[in-house]
Design a protein around this nucleic acid. Structure first.
Lengths: 161, 161
DNA sequence: GCTGAAAACGCTCACGA
DNA sequence: TCGTGAGCGTTTTCAGC
């Protein structure tokens, strides 16, 4: 992947409705070669999927809660079971295994505090957890799906640009 | 918005490359009415944008760090300044104002710990922060942009379905 | 590897039910 | 509000450079 590929990624990460011809114009490529580059990055899995992003408020899912979880059973089996449980909850958008004090961190999205409480009860009914600590977000100041591309490993373009 | 709209949202939240005709087939609608519903939801801002999601590993941005921030200057001006500073850092993908102990929470994405340290130094050089606590994610077990649609406020369809 | 053109496909709109 | 069908633009493929 070279600088042109990165330029393409920057564009489609922002807006995937752009026509291939337009992307080509912006990066200095005609339609066919630009299309082939995109095709290749899809095959390689660099581009994973194309999705529509919705307005959380308009679909009544505007409250974000971060749930810090500590467990006493640090086994692979417990994690496997826990992952399966989490997979059944569409409210959980992000799920991380952490270093430090907290073992796992969830980002949960619900309409309000009451719905979070209902979610919480359903969760602890399904699996035993030592310690759960919930932090509510008052406001989402920034949310982006655009990964920083400045760290990409770039192979120099053949023309030397 | 009725049940059909919700079905449409479910589909395009998952895969926005689906042809309108195919979406229509899946929800029981022919192309044009399906297209009109999508059009309307775009105009209303329910559908905000369409983007490509990339593989964090393949673009060398695979380490997530949660940064909990506490401030002593709880003024609107400080938040404004802080927001502007954050906007200049492409590594910050999410930024929340929190309730409780922590004032703000960032989700930062970098290639490795060294890059995080560099990011951290650049950040604190730009604005004064009372207390910063960084937690590293070892593993991203789940990441989704699909908001839960079960909480949507549904108007009954005219045909009574 | 790029260009340009042709074919296939999907989007968009006017009209009638 | 839905559906049909026609026109148009985009995507995708392919021959030639």
């Amino acid at each position: 992947m070279d600088r042109l590929d990165r330029k393409i990624l920057r564009l489609i990460q922002e807006d995937s409705t752009l026509a291939v011809a337009d992307i080509g114009k912006k990066v200095g490529l005609s339609t066919t070669p630009c299309w082939r580059r995109i095709q290749k990055m899809e095959e390689e899995g660099v581009i994973k999927r194309r999705v529509a992003l919705l307005d959380p408020e308009k679909v009544n899912a505007n409250v974000t809660v971060f749930v810090a979880i500590r467990t006493n059973t640090h086994s692979v089996e417990w994690l496997k079971r826990f992952s399966e449980v989490i997979a059944d909850f569409p409210e959980v958008l992000e799920f991380y295994r952490m270093s430090g004090e907290v073992d796992y961190l969830l980002r949960v999205v619900v309409p309000d505090i009451a719905a979070y409480d209902a979610f919480y009860k359903r969760l602890i009914a399904k699996i035993e957890i030592r310690d759960v600590s919930s932090s509510f977000a008052m406001e989402q100041i920034k949310f982006s799906t655009q990964l920083p591309l400045d760290y990409m490993k770039i192979e120099p373009a053949r023309n030397g640009e």
